[in-house]
């Protein structure tokens, strides 16, 4: 497990860009953290790191459940916040198809139970101060 600390939104974007170098087509990244932890912000950084040009395209997918951003590989941004039966819904949303050509970043991934494909990346985000956050990156086999 690796731990990273950021002290501003800008640093969180930079961390996302840095981590993007480790992710490629077929990778599923589980994001776990409370409301306001910075999950969407980290995704913005990762998407930019993967080659997305327009950062304004990244927004919370809470309502639409899944968004796709055109980067060097397709970046799929999912959100399980509103799903009561997330494990079943992941299949409906087409996670398998997404992973055949792109990177999938899943917010509120803890709601998926054991339904995420293995191995996958997991990033736990902790609020450590008004602007500071701790990110723990691990591999779930």
């Amino acid at each position: 497990m690796e731990t990273f600390e950021t002290h501003s939104l800008t640093e969180t974007y930079a961390l996302g860009r840095e981590l993007a170098g480790r992710f490629g087509a077929g990778d599923c990244v589980a994001l776990v953290g409370a409301l306001g932890a910075g999950k969407t912000a980290l995704v913005r950084g990762v998407a930019l790191g993967l080659g997305l040009r327009d950062e304004r395209m990244v927004s919370s997918p809470t309502f639409v459940l899944a968004q796709e951003y055109p980067a060097d590989v397709p970046v799929y941004h999912l959100d399980l916040y509103r799903l009561a039966d997330a494990p079943t819904e992941l299949e409906t949303l087409g996670l398998d198809e997404m992973l055949s050509d792109g990177v999938a970043l899943v917010e509120w991934a803890d709601r998926a139970g054991a339904a995420l494909p293995r191995p996958h990346w997991r990033i736990d985000i902790e609020i450590t101060g008004r602007r500071s956050r701790r990110f723990r990156l691990s591999r779930v086999d």
């Binding site: 409301l35 969407t40 912000a41 950062e55 304004r56 990244v58 927004s59 919370s60 809470t62 309502f63």
Partner: peptide, 18 residues
């Protein structure tokens, strides 16, 4: 213009949840 993160209605729902 559009939201770069949460929609307004989503903010209402999430704050109501808090």
């Amino acid at each position: 213009g559009t939201t770069i993160d949460d929609a307004a209605g989503e903010a209402f729902d999430k704050v109501a949840s808090i």
